[in-house]
Design a binder for these strands. Structure first.
Lengths: 262, 262
DNA sequence: TTGACACTCGCACGGTGTACCAGCACTATT
DNA sequence: AATAGTGCTGGTACACCGTGCGAGTGTCAA
């Protein structure tokens, strides 16, 4: 990737200055550059392959140089997580029915997080509060308010949806990115699970053994489980809103800054 | 903790054999002992404080001794996770309405996992398939089948519930076990979040700023969000069952080994 | 010319997981 | 009784990690 280093040539000392990363050698490194490189590195090699030394190397810099721009590996990861939240697209169609908008938003968040699926395990241990993450949260809250949620229930509905979406991303990730599942096709994965479950003792785990043979490919399809549960959750939320006097038609209550005109 | 070692006494050599961990010095170490000690250590000090050297020390053994009984730190963690699944209590009241049984089961799984809340981040990166975990899964599947689920939808409903429960445990954990939130009371936590959210720019995040002041203590109460979403999810599931011809009275369909007689 | 400042990075420390292997206490076999 | 095996222990060593420290660089202001 960097200039050839070990190819004998004396390389015209000082003329073509024989360096690795031209773009950096004059300008100082930037926090943004570091975060971007970190995301790229993690996307490419997963969290295992991510270390400060390795990242420095990737940037053509010494490992400890990074500490001028960033307090910690921890802080860097927080920055990475928040930056990755930028990949959640928040354009939603304000003319669509409220429920569809909410479903679409949930799907977009999930899709955005899955764009950097190696980050998924990190959601389990830190609570990001960067501007980009907050922007996403704000958007969800606004939409929930538009639907009629308020006070206690706004918080409860918000947390429930978050639980579900994050949970689905995490569960997906761990099913798809183990060392032995990495890069397998869906059909291969299905066969693998069938084999594993079929090997279980049928007397102790009758339902597990029957599970995969009975379920067709549609049930294994990407997002199928997420979509099913999402619809059930929205069923319940909708019912809750109508029951408790809230309204769910598209454009009734106060706007609450839900970016109706995007 | 161990016997006094450096207190001058010759210690009656060989009579009271002056060792640290009596129970071990004759019998060899056991994998079960190791796993148990690992859980205890993680419960006490979190994942940070857990290393092979530290664990060995805790057992009065050399660090590398553990590798005779266990392949990897990775494998050890898998064993720990599966062992911790034993703390999920699966006694349910077969005479209760189906929906209540399912809710109770979900609550129990969540409660069981939260008994070792330091393990929560690990659910994000590995997919446990030990006997105890499978036992829990089997139980959920059996109950879902009792309710009328089958084929594709059985898998979908199972995955949805799992997503939600695991997600809620993970989100809870990360809200409650950061370095700055550890051991705070609920009221303190609430105040903390209020302060954080209140400090945000109100024009960019109007709904986030209003969120906490509007939500009363009931919305912050432990399990409140979990319970709300669970009920909404079950609303949807129930509706789905009645709509698609399934039945949801308590004791109708085939038993499917749901341990009706506990 | 002299500072001050922004920035880079080599060195070193204390930690990690774990491969390797020499050693121990038994038990079974000769 | 001597020997060989076998189950188990743990010390040493290696490669890697995050990161504090401080000596170095280049640039710009005074």
């Amino acid at each position: 990737m960097t200039g050839s280093r070990s190819d004998g040539k004396p390389a015209r000392l000082g003329w073509w200055p024989e360096v690795r990363d031209r773009s950096r050698d004059r300008q100082p490194l930037t926090r943004d550059q570091i975060v971007a490189a970190a995301i790229k590195l993690i996307d490419a090699e997963g969290l295992e392959g991510f270390s400060m030394r390795r990242l420095g190397q990737e940037l053509g810099a010494g490992a400890t140089t990074l500490y001028w721009h960033v307090k910690d590996k921890d802080q860097l990861i927080d920055l990475v997580l928040d930056e990755s939240a930028l990949d959640v697209r928040l354009d939603d169609d304000a003319s669509a029915p409220w429920r569809d908008r909410l479903a679409g938003l949930a799907r977009e968040i999930r899709a955005g997080l899955k764009r950097h699926h190696h980050l998924a395990p990190l959601y389990g241990s830190r609570i990001p509060a960067g501007p980009n993450t907050l922007r996403v949260m704000e958007h969800v809250l606004a939409l929930l308010r538009t639907g009629g949620y308020d006070g206690d229930k706004l918080l409860l509905a918000f947390a429930s949806l978050t639980n579900y979406v994050i949970g689905s991303v995490i569960m997906d990730n761990r099913a798809l990115s183990g060392p032995e599942t990495e890069g397998k096709s869906l059909e291969e994965l299905r066969r693998m699970y069938v084999a594993i479950l079929a090997s279980l003792p049928a007397d102790a785990f009758p339902n597990l053994v029957r599970l995969m043979p009975e379920a067709g490919p549609a049930a294994i399809a990407e997002d199928a489980d997420f979509e099913f549960g999402l619809q059930r959750l929205l069923d319940g939320i909708e019912a809750d809103l109508t029951h408790s006097g809230g309204v769910q038609p598209a454009r009734s209550t106060r706007q609450c800054d839900a970016r109706e005109h995007g």
